[in-house]
Amino acid sequence: MTADVPTYLDGNAAAGALSEVFAVDITAAIGRCAGCGQTGVFAETRVYVDAPGMVARCAGCDGVLLRVVSTPTDTYLDLRGLTYLRLPTTP
C-alpha cells in the first residue's frame, strides 16, 4: 500500500491568484526562504492548489513560503516563510 503523495506545480501556477493581489508578475520575483536561506525566483517554488487555498513551498527544504486563501469578501496572504520578496522596479 502506497501513501498518497501530494502533487505540486511550479510557482508559475500561482500567477493567476497572485495577479489579483500584486500589480506585477510575482513569478519573476526573487525570494529567500526563512527556513533554509535558499534564494531563487518564485517560479521555482512548489505550489500546491489542492487545499482550501494555495500554498507555495521551498524547493530546497519544503518549508511553507506563502499561503493565499480567497473568500467571497477577502483575500488572505501569508508571506511569513519568506525573509524577503524582491520585485523588479519598472523604469
Score class of each variant (00 low, 15 high):
Asp74Ile: 08
Val69Met: 09
Gly31Thr: 02
Gly37Asn: 08
Thr27Pro: 08
Gln38Glu: 13
Phe22His: 08
Thr2Ser: 08
Met54Pro: 01
Thr71Gly: 11
Ala14Cys: 07
Asp78Thr: 03
Gly35Ala: 13
Cys58Trp: 09
Ile30Leu: 12
Leu79Met: 06
Gly53Cys: 11
Ile30Gly: 02
Thr39Arg: 15
Thr7Lys: 13
Ala29Arg: 01
Val5Met: 05
Arg46Tyr: 11
Leu65Trp: 11
Leu65Tyr: 11
Asp62Ala: 13
Gly31Tyr: 02
Val24Ala: 06
Asp78Met: 04
Val21Gly: 01
Tyr84Arg: 08
Asn12Val: 02
Ala15Thr: 05
Arg46Cys: 14
Ala13Lys: 10
Asp62Trp: 05
Asp10Trp: 00
Gly60Ile: 14
Leu77Val: 08
Thr73Gly: 10
Gly40Tyr: 00
Val55His: 13
Glu44Leu: 09
Gln38Trp: 15
Asp10His: 05
Gly60Glu: 04
Thr73Pro: 02
Leu87Ile: 15
Ala17Met: 03
Thr83Gly: 02
Gly40Val: 06
Leu18Arg: 00
Gly11Ser: 04
Val24Glu: 05
Ile26Pro: 01
Gly35Ser: 13
Cys58Gly: 10
Gly81Ile: 00
Ala23Asn: 06
Cys58Arg: 05
Asp74Lys: 03
Gly40His: 12
Ala59Ile: 14
Thr75Phe: 01
Arg46Val: 14
Arg67Met: 14
Ala28Arg: 02
Asp50Tyr: 08
Ala34Tyr: 04
Ala29Ile: 06
Val55Asp: 06
Leu65Asn: 03
Leu18Tyr: 00
Asp74Val: 11
Leu87Arg: 06
Gly53Glu: 03
Asp4Arg: 04
Ala3Cys: 05
Pro6Asp: 02
Pro6Met: 03
Leu66Asp: 03
Leu87Val: 15
Gly60Thr: 12
Pro52Val: 12
Asp62Glu: 14
Ala56Ile: 07
Thr75Cys: 10
Thr90Cys: 14
Val47Trp: 01
Thr45Lys: 04
Asp62Pro: 02
Pro52Leu: 13
Cys36Phe: 15
Asp74Arg: 05
